[in-house]
Design a protein around this nucleic acid. Structure first.
Lengths: 193, 193
DNA sequence: TCCGAATGTTGACGGCGCTCACATTAGACG
DNA sequence: CGTCTAATGTGAGCGCCGTCAACATTCGGA
């Protein structure tokens, strides 16, 4: 739009690449996310993205960062500040639902060695951990959050991946939600009582 | 060895490909596992593997199947028939340790859409589920295995991936084991009591 | 012994990530 | 308002990849 007059300089290639990458991911999965395809979609030569992203990994990290933000929004929308196991289960369902609705994005967020040098990703992870610790402290005041928070994250994260990879089956989103709440309550209901 | 006289027909190319694939995976991670590299290592032309594996996916599925067998062995070695939460925790530690010691193989086993048409993979998954259900029935006779077994698998599986992807930190294998047992007991100790 | 089926080779196609030399332009500075 | 530099995009090209089709070789049964 703002750059239509020149046709040489794009205007905002970094953002355009990010958008194109997210679209490609949605449409064709991880494999469809190639730098060349991104460049094509942005209407630019194959080498242009390299001015803004060091390599494919860098673009993917940027995509992952977007994913972290969207996941955080979804969790907050499920419940802003859960304080009971049932509310925690709602957040867990939102987590798994996000994974199943945007599988490629979720995989990009978590299925990579996750280079430490990316501050944005590291920050997002730290934020998740802090967020979880608060929830656990509210829901289970008697527990040790240092042990329970990672355990809960692992439980939910594991459910997400097992469903994603077809290791656990559930025909409908509602069935998924049911199995997730069942799993969470099977573990945490007991802990709470 | 047995095929050195002809030099045209390999002798057992499928097995050689599988072996080469596992080696490449160990040495260079997922990215190093290309059909061409496998063919090179097997001392054969790039197109030869296609006589035995329909495509890259098929080879990878075969690799994954090997991984499932090895994982099963490791779990059985940790404890043949766990019947207490502590013994279950040992199995959990073995699971996570396997993931961390052979990260690329573990990723291949679980980080793929897992095409349904592969009986071998589907069978392996079913076996894991059955195995787990038995353990749960032994450890927590009062519980509903239908809900608890997937939950436990998810917990351990999630721990494995979070460690693998650097989302949870632990400097040494011993520290990993400690965190895993802590997580398992934080959840299951309460359930058992 | 001979012939078909199984197996391996050669060569090719398009796509990929990435690099380098070059072209174009924006924007700071005089 | 002009000029020069740094930022940005282009084009060509490298080696790798997955995959296929046509061809060569060999094994095993009739």
């Amino acid at each position: 739009m703002a750059a239509s007059k020149t046709a040489y300089h794009h205007g905002d290639l970094p953002a355009a690449c990010l958008g194109a990458a997210l679209e490609l991911l949605e449409e064709g999965g991880e494999t469809a996310l190639s730098l060349r395809a991104v460049a094509r979609r942005a209407g630019v030569s194959p080498a242009a993205p390299y001015r803004h992203y060091a390599d494919r990994e860098a673009l993917i990290s940027a995509v992952a960062a977007v994913g972290y933000r969207e996941l955080a929004e979804r969790l907050a929308a499920a419940h802003p500040a859960p304080s009971t196991p049932a509310q925690l289960a709602d957040v867990a369902v939102a987590y798994v639902r996000f994974a199943l609705e945007r599988p490629a994005l979720f995989r990009v967020m978590f299925s990579e060695p996750c280079d430490r040098d990316n501050d944005e990703r590291a920050g997002a992870i730290a934020a998740v951990q802090l967020y979880l610790r608060e929830i656990v402290a509210r829901c289970f005041p008697a527990s040790d959050p240092e042990a329970l928070a990672p355990a809960i994250w692992a439980l939910v994260h594991g459910l997400a991946f097992l469903f994603l990879d077809g290791k656990l089956e559930a025909p409908t989103p509602a069935a998924v939600a049911e199995r997730v709440t069942a799993a969470v309550e099977a573990m945490l209901g007991a802990t709470a009582s």
